[in-house]
Amino acid sequence: MNIRPLVIAILAMAIMFGACSGNDGEREQQSKKQMAAGDHTAHAQMKMASEEPTDESIYNVSSIWLNRYGQKVKLGSLRGKVQVVAMVYTHCEFACPRILADMKRIRDRLSEEELKATNFVIVSIDPERDIPERLRNFASENELSDTNWTLLNGGQGDILELAALLGVKYKKISETDFTHSNIITVLNKEGEVAHQRKKLDDDPTPIVKNIKVLTS
């Protein structure tokens, strides 16, 4: 019974790409992209010193955000450290506390040295309620230090853009709640997506391993 929706979805996709796209290059491009992903780390290190963000860096966006103190921040200011990013909202009672707990668990598995090269970023998808003051309170309630945690409030369009860059989907479903992907993204020091943990119940070991490699 459970398979039926899946089959329908797959059929629908097949129809889409068969009938409507006629787009031969699509799958090819996809695989090219995956192949290219292998070169990124080398690429990033090579370009580390240059001013311009690399082509695959999310720091190419020009959006301006507010941190928990209400100071203006560009995402590019995060460059130079490995970033562990999640998009959540602080009033969330279900998934977000678990995401935060997972981020802390990741943090606890890093050495002091690794922690110096790592920062954790929480981007609110609920900018109207998650104003800097709220973010400040949330940070102190959850003991999120200044040295390792950045909390960001931004404009609707800029949040959508960042979500698009990270492949995060979210949607307001009522006055108080959002539905959203539970993705935790690791950005390398250049701001390129290096690894993603997509589901809540996935083991944090791969993500921790990744951070260890990226910070070394």
Binding site: P5, A12, L160, I173, T179, H180, K199
Partner: peptide, 28 residues
């Protein structure tokens, strides 16, 4: 569209319980 990425199609978050099921039921 501006918010194309608000459509949930894979099992994520609470979407699988609500909206997504409605999608498939509507189509199926």
């Amino acid at each position: 569209v501006q918010d194309f990425n608000t459509v949930f199609i894979s099992g994520e978050s609470r979407g699988d319980q609500g909206e997504l099921k409605q999608f498939y039921c509507a189509a199926g």
